[in-house]
Design a protein around this nucleic acid. Sequence first.
DNA 1: GATTTGAGTGCACATCTGTACACTCACTAG
DNA 2: CTAGTGAGTGTACAGATGTGCACTCAAATC
Lengths: 226, 226
Amino acid sequence: MDHPEGVSTLPDVSEAEMPAAVSRQERKQRTRQALLDAALELLADRGFGSLSLREVTKRAGIVPTAFYRHFTSMDELGVALVEETTRTLRGMIRSARTEPVSHRGRIDASVRTLYEHVRAHEDHFRFVTRERYAGTGPVARAIGVELRLFSSDLAIDLARFDHLREWPTEDLHALADLIVTAMLATVVDLLDVRHGDREADERTLELARKRLRMILVGVPHWRPSA
Amino acid sequence: MDHPEGVSTLPDVSEAEMPAAVSRQERKQRTRQALLDAALELLADRGFGSLSLREVTKRAGIVPTAFYRHFTSMDELGVALVEETTRTLRGMIRSARTEPVSHRGRIDASVRTLYEHVRAHEDHFRFVTRERYAGTGPVARAIGVELRLFSSDLAIDLARFDHLREWPTEDLHALADLIVTAMLATVVDLLDVRHGDREADERTLELARKRLRMILVGVPHWRPSA
DNA sequence: GATTTGAGTGCACATCTGTACACTCACTAG
DNA sequence: CTAGTGAGTGTACAGATGTGCACTCAAATC
């Protein structure tokens, strides 16, 4: 009697929306995803630290207390966000590995791959670049771990190249870090370009290529652990 | 009659503190500085976005509403913090310019200078590296401007060198950005080292030098605007 | 000495925060 | 068909937030 009406349990998508999956698990998965999406959207112009549980649930279309059915805390939500982003990054690596290797055009291809993935998942890339240094919380830590893995992967790939065969791993890692850092700087640049400005896009990509060339032009002249 | 007692107007430093300046302006300046200091301390482990006016005033030892005598908003406080940090950076440049230029040891000297300034002003450096990408607010924008100025200054300095005399400014700026980015990465590394770990410090500095060498070893072999 | 000024105070308020609690009721399992 | 489960609901509350208001009272000005 206390809840006269409006007790519809579900956000009332009714029809005209998704197939309205029947399974209970799938329903849960779906709101979980709604929470992640909501958070990501809110993070478009603010930091994760200044993000409230209530905001996220409101945007996701559920009541605040229901949040705890999916995460025990906002930090846990944040880490889940990092994991989601991780999949995007792994997808990018996979793309980069299966590519026309025209030797000279390797830089161009890599930059192109980065560009397309950034544009396809702007939210994710904004999230990592923003939160990477954003604090001491579990989120920043998770991102740190992920980027280090990413860099190590790149180091292994680099080890297969002519000049780099006999470099000590230490130097390889330093080079890989340099490259990753340059790429992340490019990501930030790309996210600053307002949508649809093809010209600015191209200028940014040219700068990205220049950066990589500058780093790599020295490789043949590096004497390891000098 | 409403304020029986405890209306002491000032934080009651009484004596045994600073000379307790008499001037009214100086008093004001002093609490303003207290606000800046308080904010900087609170920012040690959190982002500027998740920083409340009340917290800052509490730590500074004044009542919340008194905040507005000094800044119209938190953002304004943040920009003032950037300006303060700017002075630290300019001081570092000045140090770097008046130094024993042993040609080969230039990298070592620069890294050393960076190290000392970071250790002397950890709060400031943590602030810039944290907030650089932290959002769309006035703070991040102010930091962006400042770092670009910093990078341009470096580009001008670089232009005086042998191999770089005839580089187009575009390439010079790209190189300067590369160096600044590497330096900022080193700052982050340094701030991650727990206090007093001399060994980790030295390892970080060695990595910093390696990074710079890797970037610069290619300089003589770069063909401008290729 | 009398007056003005302004950095600081306390109180008040509406809003937002996280979370405890008891609830419903569609799905699932028996 | 019945019973149990659990993702969702509304209510409630204590605490924190930004800011308006009227205030004090030492320093600055006259």
